[in-house]
Design a binder for these strands. Structure first.
Length: 891
RNA sequence: GCCCGGGUGGCGGAAUGGUAGACGCAGCGGACUUAAAAUCCGUUGGUAGCAAUACCGUGUGGGUUCGAGUCCCACCCCGGGCACCA
């Protein structure tokens, strides 16, 4: 009999029974509400799951199990993000083929997820590397291509000279390859992009309708980086170009930067968000690779050209990371050319400097050193004039520069002086527009999504290059373009894809039957994870990526759970694809994830020590991490134990297998739910786990002690039971707990839900203080409620307890308890009595005591009267059922 | 530098503007035991007091309010993200 929590005796039994019964097969009964609970698509690493990863899966599982018991049709699927660089790199390291390797790793994940009791419908599972899945990834690529949202252009990639391979941006940290540690070089290769910038505005504005953590939404807003400003054209004059001294202003052109033939006068277009500072322009800056530089070189003296060329060469060598390094002095070069400020006709020098980026705005700026910190630094370095044109107060002339703030008034700005910044921005933009040299414009920091990888292990891009150098999509009936089975998939090292070395793959025929060559790039892993949540609704469809009806019945995802590290990449890409599919009419919603939750990490005690003589700590490093064996060997005082994120490299990982062995799965689950709020970090501790084991033990014992009272038909007879004494007390506790646990799970407050169950258990033990035990039906209600309320959190124990009552089947199939507010209501209220806001007494009064009666009882209190002596009562605040505050003052 | 979070007992944490510290861990006292473990009961913010009780307490300083951990302003510290985007 189950008299204590002995997981070894029942866990495996229930795991097998759930499997035999296909317990978690998705129910699709008409007439029930639906709930789609999903966790981030994991890449199955060879290291397996730690109890840290479980923090993602357990809470989500609790919600899905609860929703099912509440009568929902629940979709709770799991699959694996198998394509991509992490898998390929690991396979290279192990000298195996990535396909079988990843499948093996996925199986391990699945076993571990089953171990911890996740309620996944495995019949819907897939790997993103399955041809039956990536066929449809290719189909969606074609849709993007056909809608003009996938294009190919020459672009710089991150090249790792040690590993001889291209790296994704996220594999480059601080300019160095994450794995090899080599300085990443720039390499120019034709690349595929998705035109996510076309959706920038919608991706930004639709954030407002999502129930996501504010921090994540903010990160996306920053990443998209919308800014409103003005783009306008400036005339460019060259030193030996006397003819162009005073030509008329040319109208603005459509293109981003307009370059005109020298005989008609050169112009440059700049973008600014601070058109109000236009009178403060003392120079202009072009990005080093700006096309106008070529024209300028034709009209400046030879020594200038040499300096320009030298600077361009130097700038080209620098990787982006070096360029963006903090606190770096700003190098640049004076071109010798000048721009004319349209506001005041002044001639200012044009510089080249790499602090201006060719990839943002027009690649050219008007520099206002008085009101921009970057321009200020540059002006100081090159001895350029710095002029104040905005002051905190109207008319104030002594402004401390740089003054970048936007709340101020114009000075030194001709007829615009005295206006506020906002007013001046409006008037000056209108003026530039009227002159037809400028236009208001919105720019985004967001860049197009670089999708191609010159690597083997990815979804092939379904494009053919014809003999006429056209690009054709592979016809639907030829999909999928299968990834060829090869022995050697190593990158060749020259920046081409390994697929390019396989003639049988490359050579094909185009739609007209002529010879053609396949695209040999593959898609980065983020493409595959941008639609997997749709496939789960209809995972075995071989006619289409999904049937619109099935997607309509399950999507959007009601609750999406994963780590905050995917705040921008995956979540932005998935939103983008969803909007494209919506625009194409494939689906009827344009946001995939209504609610998003980020779980906190799991930290473990990790040993560090102080640096020894001769050891130098790098910036930000506060100690030297040591192994547990080293820590053992050192004297206590020399080891500095800190909380650090669990990771294999730190040697502080606890696996779910270890936790299950030592404490049982249910203890693991309840611990992770209880020890801190869902979003917060938790600290792994064996003492904490022991506390949970104690709690589970007490549940088993209490139910064992009261099993003789169990009446399976209590629901039919309990309404006849007199509700008084210990029976009333018990039923009140039961119904209060049902209410609390239900609402806490609903709001992801699992820690307080567990606490409520612990409180409940304490009150069950207190029942022994009554002379008469509660009625057997009330006890039965308590037994059943307790088992069912813990079931989503500790499902193995719940089923074991349920069976120990003589009941058949699974708690998963029982209806979630409902609370009766009348039974939950307190018969007495505890009222706080304050004098001048300080607590002086608490009174116990019958529930429903009205305000005046409360006030009277408070004034009669002896403890209170002590504080009223010699005072005058000015006012009495009464919060019915809660509190009385008597405001007094000296007489 | 900018943008988000967050500072509450020895520790993890709880608290729709209304009794701060629920619940748990650790500690202390006791019961059971030959003993220990386990279990059970009690106790535990600080200071003073035999006690009743009083005073002080939610990072710091102000403010709003009958009443502030909670709202507002300024600042300090910690964690995370972004970082020359004109």
């Amino acid at each position: 009999m189950a008299s204590r929590y002995d997981p070894a005796s029942f866990e495996q039994k229930w795991r097998s029974r759930w499997k035999e019964a296909d317990l978690f097969l998705t129910r699709e009964e008409p007439g029930r509400p639906k709930f789609y609970g999903l966790e981030f698509f994991p890449y199955p690493s060879g290291k397996g799951l730690s109890v840290g990863h479980c923090r993602n899966y357990i809470p989500s599982d609790v919600v899905c199990r609860t929703k099912f018991m509440q009568g929902y049709n629940v979709l709770h699927p799991m699959g694996f993000d198998a394509f991509g660089l992490p898998a390929e790199n690991e396979a290279i390291k192990n000298q195996v083929h990535p396909g079988p390797m990843v499948e093996r790793y996925g199986d391990t994940y699945r076993q571990q997820m089953d171990l911890i009791g996740c309620s996944y419908d495995w019949s819907r599972s897939f790997f993103s590397s399955d041809p039956s899945y990536y066929k449809w990834t290719q189909k969606i690529f074609k849709l993007l291509f056909e809608r003009g949202l996938a294009y190919r252009k020459l672009a710089a990639v991150n090249w790792d000279p040690v590993d001889q391979t291209v790296l994704a941006d996220e594999e480059v940290i601080g300019g160095r390859a994450e794995r090899s540690g080599a300085l990443v070089e720039k390499k120019w290769i034709p690349q595929w992009f998705f035109k996510i910038t076309a959706y920038a505005d919608r991706l930004l504005s639709d954030l407002d309708k999502l129930d996501w953590p504010e921090g994540i939404k903010n990160q996306q807003r920053n990443w998209i980086g919308r800014s409103e400003g003005v783009e306008f054209t400036m005339r460019v004059v060259l030193p030996n170009d006397a003819a162009s001294e005073n030509p008329p202003l040319q109208p603005a052109e459509e293109e981003v930067f307009s370059v005109k033939s020298p005989d008609r006068g050169l112009t440059m277009t700049v973008f600014t968000t601070r058109v109000d500072t236009i009178f403060g322009v003392t120079f202009c800056v072009l990005a080093p690779e700006h096309p106008l530089v070529e024209k300028i070189c034709l009209g400046v003296p030879e020594e200038r050209v040499e300096a320009i060329r030298a600077y361009q060469a130097q700038a080209k060598l620098l990787g982006d990371q070096d360029r963006l390094a903090a606190n770096r002095e700003k190098p640049g070069v004076n071109t010798g050319a000048f721009a004319i400020n349209p506001a005041n006709g002044e001639k200012v020098p044009i510089f080249l400097a790499d602090y201006v980026l060719m990839t943002y705005g027009t690649g050219a700026i008007m520099a206002v050193p008085g009101h921009d910190e970057r321009d200020y630094e540059f002006a100081q370095a090159y001895g350029l004039p710095i002029l104040p044109v905005i002051a905190p107060e109207a008319g104030q002339l002594d402004v401390e520069l740089p003054f970048p703030a936007k709340d101020g008034f114009l000075i030194n700005s001709g007829e615009y002086s005295g206006l506020s910044v906002a007013e001046a921005q409006l008037r000056l933009s209108e003026w530039l527009e009227a002159l037809e040299i400028g236009t208001r414009k919105v720019n985004y920091k967001l860049r197009d999504w670089l999708i191609s990888r010159q690597r083997y292990w990815g979804c092939p891009i379904p494009i053919m290059h014809t003999q006429d150098e056209e690009m054709q999509t592979v016809p639907d009936d030829c999909l999928p373009v299968l990834l060829p089975e090869v022995e050697n998939y190593l990158p060749p090292g020259d920046g081409t894809s390994p697929l390019a070395l396989i003639p049988e793959f490359v050579n094909t025929t185009d739609r007209d039957g002529r010879l053609a060559q396949r695209e040999t790039d593959t898609m980065g892993g983020f493409a595959c994870s941008s639609w997997y949540f749709l496939r789960f609704a209809d995972p075995h469809n071989d006619e289409a990526p999904f049937s619109p009806e099935k997607v309509k019945s399950w999507l959007p995802v009601d609750c999406y759970v994963g780590g905050a590290e995917h705040a921008v990449m995956h979540l932005l890409y998935a939103r983008f694809w969803t909007k494209v599919l919506y625009d194409a009419g494939w689906i009827e919603f344009d946001e995939p994830f209504l609610t998003l939750k980020n779980q906190g990490q799991v930290l473990a005690q990790t040993p560090y020590r102080k640096p020894r003589e001769g050891e130098v700590l790098s910036v930000g490093q506060t100690g030297i991490q040591i192994t547990f064996a080293e820590a053992e060997a050192l004297p206590d005082g020399e080891v500095d134990w800190r909380w650090a994120r669990m990771s294999k490299s730190k040697g502080n990982v606890v696996t779910p297998e270890q936790a299950a062995e030592q404490f049982g799965v249910d203890a693991l689950r309840v611990f992770e739910l209880f020890v801190a709020p869902f979003e917060a970090e938790i600290q792994w501790s064996n003492e904490g786990m022991n506390g949970i084991v104690r709690f589970l033990n007490r549940i088993f014992r209490w139910i064992d002690d009261h099993r003789s009272a169990w009446n399976p038909n209590w629901k039919n007879s309990i309404s006849q039971v007199e509700n008084s004494g210990s029976t009333a007390t018990l039923r009140r506790a039961t119904h209060q707990t049902i209410a609390k646990v239900t609402s806490d799970i609903d709001r992801f407050a699992f820690n307080t839900a567990v606490a409520a169950l612990m409180t409940y258990l304490n009150s069950l033990d207190d029942l022994s203080k009554f002379d008469r035990p509660p009625h057997a039906d009330a006890l039965s209600e308590a037994i059943e409620s307790l088992i069912l309320l813990v079931a989503p959190m500790a499902p193995f124990s719940a089923d074991e307890l349920w069976e120990s009552l003589g009941e058949a089947g699974f708690t998963y199939h029982q209806a979630w308890p409902k609370h009766d507010p009348a039974l939950a209501a307190e018969s007495e209220i505890t009222v706080a009595v304050q004098v001048n806001g300080k607590l002086r007494d608490t009174l116990t009064l019958p529930a429903g005591t009205d305000g005046p009666a409360m006030e009277q009882a408070a004034l009669e209190s002896k403890k209170v009267q002590v504080f009223l002596e010699g005072k005058v009562v000015r006012k009495v605040i009464v919060v019915p059922g809660k509190l009385i505050n008597i405001v007094v003052s000296d007489a």
